[in-house]
């Protein structure tokens, strides 16, 4: 057993948990968190793909891709959270007489 197998399996498991959260949960913030877990899970897969048995150096390409993915996910999260806040305000205003 090597670290890449262990973390590869963990990454797929995290993606699966996130997938379940994104499609099965109702709470808006929680569904978004599920999506964030998916992105970390996909990050694990790419980083495992970059890992080489020491002392060989890892492949830098997937590392760069994951950094890009992290920033992209933050952008999407920020947009979704803004929608959640605005929608909450509108629904809140409607609930009041």
């Amino acid at each position: 057993m090597t670290p890449d197998l262990i973390y590869g399996a963990a990454g797929l498991a995290v993606f699966g948990i996130g997938l379940w959260g994104a499609i099965a949960l109702q709470d808006r913030m929680r569904r978004l968190l599920g999506l964030k877990l998916c992105s970390v899970g996909a990050g694990f897969v790419l980083i495992v793909g970059a890992w080489r048995e020491p002392p060989a150096a890892p492949d830098p390409m997937p590392h760069a891709l994951v950094i890009t993915g992290i920033v992209v996910m933050l952008s999407a999260t920020a947009a979704a959270l803004a929608l959640i806040r605005r929608l909450h305000d509108l629904e809140d205003a409607d609930d009041r007489p």
């Binding site: 964030k36 970059a50 994951v66 992290i70 933050l74 959270l81």
Partner: peptide
């Protein structure tokens, strides 16, 4: 931390700062 173990310190730094820190602040 796991990504540091997988020899990806740059990514670990980005995930900690942006993926976790800023996302957590937004949440």
């Amino acid at each position: 931390l796991a990504w540091v173990r997988l020899a990806a310190p740059d990514v670990a730094l980005a995930e900690a700062a942006i993926g976790t820190g800023l996302t957590g602040a937004l949440l």
